[in-house]
Design a protein around this nucleic acid. Sequence first.
RNA 1: GGGGAGGUGGCAGAGUGGUCAAUUGCACCAGACUGUAAAUCUGGCGCCUCACGGCUACGGAGGUUCGAACCCUCCCCUCCCCA
Length: 406
Amino acid sequence: MRSVEEQLKVIRRGVVQICEEGELREKLARGKRLRVKLGVDPTAADLHLGFTVVLRKLRQFQELGHQAVLIIGTYTAQVGDPSGRDKSRPQLAEETVMANAEKYLAQAGKVLDLSRVEVRYNGEWFKGMKFMDVIKLLAKSTVARMLEREDFSGRVSAGVPIYLHEIVYPLMQGYDSVVVGADVELGGSDQTFNLMMGRDLQRDAGQEPQVCITMPLLEGLDGVRKMSKSFGNYVGINEAPKEMFGKIMSVSDEMMWKYYELVTDVALEEIEEMREGVTEGGLHPMEVKKRLAGEIVRMYHGEGAAREAREEFERVFSAREVPSEMREVRVVPDGEGRIDVVGLLVKNGLASSNGEARRLIGQGAVELGGERVKELRVVAPREGEVVLRAGKRRFLRVIIERGGTT
RNA sequence: GGGGAGGUGGCAGAGUGGUCAAUUGCACCAGACUGUAAAUCUGGCGCCUCACGGCUACGGAGGUUCGAACCCUCCCCUCCCCA
């Protein structure tokens, strides 16, 4: 096992806060394998990059020889974590949660070494609790303490309801720590309160309190709000390579550094060098961003896919050519040899309504075979293939067939 | 239980009888430019229609009115104060 200082160097990368670092140092110095807990609620079936920030930290602990304890919050997911939310989370049905949990775990395996992870489902201990047990748990905290939280107090002043079950959530998460005897718990910075609750409950139970390590929340593609499925600003780790690559290219130049630090293994020193290179003008931000996109795609899809995704991106966006693959449809022109572009766009999902399709044409966003479409119906070549393009990203290969005997 | 405030487009938030498919901001889409699906600028942004126009929509259900997001009744939901 590496020295305490070496371990700390790895652990510190990208963290917001270690509470308390002194305690962590002590625990490490004892040389024992630490039990490092991460709780996840399988509220959705897909993992995204934002979530890998904290998963990767867990992975780093694994690599340092510690025991990763992954809590799948089958029970807490049914309550709904109020953290950082400006409204209540929907409560999920047990079947949904269990189905999600399975998919979740499979995806977490892309980051963690699952063979060395202790996986626990918190339904295991919550399911059998008696009401009186719940009451006893509730008696461990106070309303005032809960209202210290900014998300709760914010909701109070904004007039958004807070339901009582949401108040219980932090206690549940804290109780998980007691059950598994966590030495360290990881979480996003919005989890700080919940993590601290673990410390309180552990102390109350006569355990040594866990060290809480919080990670920054990764902003999504909009660069403003945290990455989240519900904001639609996420990059799923199961997404197709070229989709993933393109999405990462839409991260703003300023934000990409944070992505480098939090979701890649590129050394901090190297990131700093690149940043200086860009500031001084010798290094092109687009190149740096392409590398970022490549690094990330490689992690989840491999080297080959990363290269292809990059080539595809350069072809479509830099060279403005058409993608290598796209959907194909066959159309037969009408009696006058024209095709209905609007209908084609809508039927194939390139536009969501006829109105939008017309608008796109009006805005000059639609091309057929490289020619800008100006009419709603257009004279088509007699036969053969042409590419229909709507905007920068939507393509369709159209195979014109010879009109019948009409 | 009593009193007060409020529920508007993906979100925030105007509008309080016709001039409202509904100001504005964000998000989103497109164009221009470019160095990228960055940034910036410009335009667009319910559905049907080439268009004229029509239809559906302002928590839900009724009602008043020539006409309602706006007025009335009931219902549902939320917040605040008091008990």
